[in-house]
Design a protein around this nucleic acid. Structure first.
Lengths: 191, 191
DNA sequence: CGTCTATTTGAATGTACTCAAAAGCGGTGG
DNA sequence: CCACCGCTTTTGAGTACATTCAAATAGACG
């Protein structure tokens, strides 16, 4: 199990002793996902938080009419789960699916809660993670409310160029909240 | 300075000794705001996080064209700031204004950073706060992407009934991402 | 090479917006 | 206490934006 990336990730914000690293490592399980495999399915339990070692995943919500809305993408070095349902131990509201063959490390809610007690620095680490996640969502909402679709698309390309290369346009459209046909139109109609 | 509410707020998630409470209290400054007074203005420094003791505030973004988009409301027992700019010590991107006469407690970035070191439990406290804030934003985004405006309006009334009573309709419209005229239409045209 | 999915194109429709004006409502001062 | 002022909400007409549906084209993959 390759933990280089996840240790590099934590050490951006906290420093752990070797003993602490080993303890942390012992709580992680590896999971490999083929392209299009589900990590989490709407309605199922969501007991883990996931760190992406390789590959790319997409979290999306299907409303009762079948409309697909992309919540987030996650690629190497990102954390992903259905946070609301993970924290409150509710059935997942969203699907998380591998866009390409992926390998992730998973940590259970139970183990994470224990980790907060055993290694208090993890409170700090996840505080910072959650701060960034919150700010990201808030900035996204500001753009959603105040910018037209073309500007949002261009900002997306700037902010997540590597994701934009990997995922089909229709999934970017679903992230931006427009139809694929409309996104196709506006990005080509600018001569 | 009344700190009952803020101590009740922290004690939902962490417990503090009297000594710690006094230390925390010593870092707080009270500020009273008349109706329509600004707490934070776009472009100005944003060095504080604010806890609302009484009253109601609104955070909103004005885009270059003058379009007003409401980021959040905050009423008694809520925390509010321009989080992204607060954390990264950038000039504020949003305005925060008192909707009604309000009284808040403010904590500076410098003092908060010191607090994390002096009283590590605050890492846990703000971790939990940020988790909730993140989930709230994410749920809002899911609704923004997947629900029509009328459903979003009805969910808003359900989720924040006390805010809905206090703020004008046009500000709810700006929170939902529609024009006040349109919101007025859809909520009356359902006979 | 053939199949499946993604993207583009176009026409028709509907949704939400702008602008303008009227009606409602709350607060203030005479 | 009432009349006026300013702001919010409603109403309506015309317009722009974004969607649906259908079909053609292009790309990816076994």
């Amino acid at each position: 199990m390759d933990t280089d990336l996840i240790f590099a990730n934590t050490s951006k914000h906290i420093s752990l002793s070797n003993e602490e690293k080993n303890h942390f490592k012992s709580l992680l399980k590896e999971e490999k996902l083929k392209k299009n495999a589900f990590l989490i399915r709407q309605g199922n339990p969501c007991n883990h938080i996931h760190f992406v070692n390789t590959g790319t995943l997409r979290a999306y919500y299907l409303n009762p009419k079948g409309k697909d809305s992309t919540i987030m993408f996650a690629t190497e070095d990102w954390w992903i789960t259905d946070m609301h349902c993970f924290l409150n131990e509710l059935p997942a509201m969203v699907n998380i699916k591998a866009i390409e063959t992926s390998s992730i490390l998973k940590l259970s809610k139970k183990d994470l809660d224990a980790l907060y007690l055993d290694i208090p620095a993890f409170n700090q680490f996840f505080r910072i993670l959650m701060q960034k996640a919150y700010c990201r969502e808030q900035l996204r909402m500001i753009q959603q409310l105040s910018l037209p679709a073309l500007d949002r698309y261009e900002n997306f390309l700037k902010k997540y160029p590597e994701v934009a290369r990997k995922v089909p346009l229709k999934q970017i459209a679903s992230y931006l909240g427009v139809t694929p046909e409309f996104l196709s139109n506006i990005r080509n109609n600018k001569p």
